Amino acid sequence: MQGVVKVNSALNMRSGPGSNYGVIGTLRNNDKVEIIKEVDGWYEIRFNGKVGYASKSYITIVN
Rank of each mutant, 00 (worst) to 15 (best):
R28Q: 15
K37S: 14
G41I: 09
P17C: 02
R28C: 05
T60G: 10
M13G: 01
V5Q: 01
G22F: 10
A54F: 04
Y53R: 00
I24V: 15
S57W: 10
I61M: 11
S15R: 07
V33N: 00
L27K: 01
G3E: 02
N8Y: 07
D31F: 05
V4F: 05
G41E: 11
Y21Q: 03
K37D: 09
G3N: 02
V51S: 11
M13N: 01
I45F: 07
G49N: 12
A54I: 10
Y58D: 12
K37H: 12
I59K: 00
N29C: 05
N30G: 14
V7G: 13
M1K: 08
R46L: 15
V33A: 03
I61H: 09
V5D: 01
L27N: 00
N29K: 07
G49F: 07
I36D: 04
G3I: 03
K56D: 04
Y43F: 14
V51C: 05
V62I: 10
F47T: 07
T60C: 06
D31P: 01
M1Q: 15
E44V: 06
V33Y: 02
E34N: 04
G3D: 02
E34K: 04
I61T: 07
R46T: 15
S57K: 12
I24Y: 02
G41S: 10
A10T: 09
I45G: 00
L27H: 00
D31L: 04
I24G: 02
L27M: 10
A10F: 13
E34I: 04
K37Y: 09
R46I: 15
G52N: 01
I59F: 05
V33L: 06
D31Y: 06
T26E: 15
A54L: 09
P17W: 01
K56Y: 05
G18D: 06
G18L: 01
N63A: 12
E34M: 05
M1N: 12
S57N: 15
S9P: 07
I36C: 04
N29Q: 09
S19W: 10
R28G: 12
L11Q: 10
V51E: 10
D40T: 10
G49K: 09
W42P: 00
Y58Q: 09
N48A: 10
G52L: 02
S9Q: 14
V5H: 01
K37W: 06
N30H: 12
K32D: 08
I24P: 01
R46H: 14
L11E: 09
R14N: 07
Y43A: 03
V39Y: 12
N12P: 15
I61G: 05
E38F: 06
V33I: 09
I35R: 00
K6G: 08
M1E: 12
A54D: 00
G41Y: 05
V51H: 13
D40R: 07
T60A: 13
S9C: 05
K50D: 14
D40A: 08
G49C: 07
K6T: 14
I35D: 00
